[in-house]
Design a protein around this nucleic acid. Sequence first.
DNA 1: CTCCACCACTTATCCGGTTCAGTGAATTCT
DNA 2: AGAATTCACTGAACCGGATAAGTGGTGGAG
Lengths: 349, 349
Amino acid sequence: MKRPTIADIARRAGVSKGAVSYALNGQPGVSEATRQRIVAIAQEIGFNPNSAARALSGASARAVGLTLCRPARMLSIEPFFMGLISGFESELAARSYALTLQVVATPELEVEVYRRWWGERRIDGVIVTDLRENDVRIQVLQQLQLPAVVIGGPGDTGRIAQIWSDDAGAITETVRYLVALGHRRIARVSGLPDLLHTQTRTRAFHEVCASLGLNEAVTVPSDYTGEEGGRATRRLLIGNDRPTAIIYDNDVMAVAGLAVAQEMGLAVPGDLSIVAWDDSPLCSLVHPPLTALTRDIAEYGAHAARELLAAIDGKQVGNVEAGAAHLTPRGSTAPPRQPGSAAPAQPEP
Amino acid sequence: MKRPTIADIARRAGVSKGAVSYALNGQPGVSEATRQRIVAIAQEIGFNPNSAARALSGASARAVGLTLCRPARMLSIEPFFMGLISGFESELAARSYALTLQVVATPELEVEVYRRWWGERRIDGVIVTDLRENDVRIQVLQQLQLPAVVIGGPGDTGRIAQIWSDDAGAITETVRYLVALGHRRIARVSGLPDLLHTQTRTRAFHEVCASLGLNEAVTVPSDYTGEEGGRATRRLLIGNDRPTAIIYDNDVMAVAGLAVAQEMGLAVPGDLSIVAWDDSPLCSLVHPPLTALTRDIAEYGAHAARELLAAIDGKQVGNVEAGAAHLTPRGSTAPPRQPGSAAPAQPEP
DNA sequence: CTCCACCACTTATCCGGTTCAGTGAATTCT
DNA sequence: AGAATTCACTGAACCGGATAAGTGGTGGAG
């Protein structure tokens, strides 16, 4: 079954290809009567303009690209990326832009994908996640003049737009909250240490701990997976001066940490309080439900998509701050049980 | 910065556009020396063939489409889809096919997306998930003659290739295992009831239960979300003849069910055994870790992508069975505690 | 009544590849 | 040696739209 072209419409309407093009694109140059006739025929035969032909005559590809540079096993469990993708989609679909996805192994391969996509005119712009320090991708994007939006700062992205949330503020708020509950030994299990937002969080965490006189604050680097998060937790909890509260850089590690604590016979939140960064249904599913730093990830993604579309349209976009994460207290945080004091009544079996 | 075209290469090499095209595509018609000279120039100036121009001259778009028809909040937590996407990618990237993604609200919108993509020549084929009974999408795909692979059968897909795993066998194995442990009252919390694979599982579940003389077998329909899964579990557990084992159609609901059981003071696995369909890191993260029906979802996706690429190449592909899920016993299943007998020692706090 | 502006189109060109039908020169065959 | 074939390449058409330039007819202004 041959797919119809404007030539088919032109033949049936008894006009030229050019007239059809004008009519379908709402350009002046055809009478209203003719336009309606042409539109009706296009409807009837189910015409869709060939995107390749359009793109070839100078129009944009009407697609944006996203590369994901994490191992498959991390992607499948992390609710973050799917949330982000849903957010992108909500904006892109409304303007009928397609989203092209590629999973890559390394940042170097990622820039290769950018080069290829851009060279092939396959996409009009890209969304970059997981900003690193002196990120190779930034230079390449600038050099290619490929419209882009970077998520995961704040960082130095030159002329490229970025969108970030105030992670430093969020972690400061969290530490203050835990200290207010009475915690003095607070630890943190972080995400991949070479990501810029991990560094931002780490810096802010240690600053606020120092300012509050918490000298034992420690950050254990991890990689967002449950296994690593569990291992890191075990390492933290076997020490003599074990922390009474742990902040995790994502929900998956927090859930894993919870399981480790329970397996070691520690009561949560009595013996150990837990805070997860990024709230997902996961956090409310487990028992006790986890106190979390909630962000609207889909909205974050939608915001990024809007910025990217603006950049593609040639508008100047800069450094945008999205809504910061805010603390959602649930059952996993409480004042620490005093050593030697009786265990508070637990609703657990 | 203007992106280079074959005309640029032709000028620099002192040959015609046609010669460059032959050289870069490994076609006969140029001498080996010239070919190498042309390839070197292409390398040097960073040439990538414009995919639109290629697609326009009859070549394929080198992209496949995937639509996801589930609400965003389900997508973000379900590890299934990300696993599937990772699997697709591993095959597609190897043959440098792009994956185009779209989140849609309804199956009707989904067929609109197919029509548009195909009409625009944006994609060469699609992967269809969540097969339903008398699925509208099947007819449309056949009518459009759009190459496709359907996941989520087995079902009637006419000439369209499908790939499925033996869910009936897997659930039969699971029930037999639970019965062997001593369970007699087994319930099931299912996924969306209008999905074909849900119906397959339900039918098989009730058949095996009947054949084993389990007359109280009940399936509670749900929707894959944690909230619904938790609610369904609560409903099952408040009855007088509460089940001693529950099988969940996905991991998210199983984790939610676990939380509900613990919150109601039931010991898992002593009072209630839990089996999750689809093993994800989630299942081993919680405490106790969940017995699960393990499938290699990424491999499932990779397999589907291979079939689709074969279909795009015009090869006849039919009805392919992928590896079935197999039971991975973990801590959440055990013989049911006899009513009145002493509770076995629990390692929990 | 003439000239010009305007409308509603048509014609032609372009985008950047692919591909087919030549073309001249070198090589092979008879 | 002359004809036939092969080789290495050129020129042009083509894919399906967008768009600039051109065309004939109409209406109003001068």
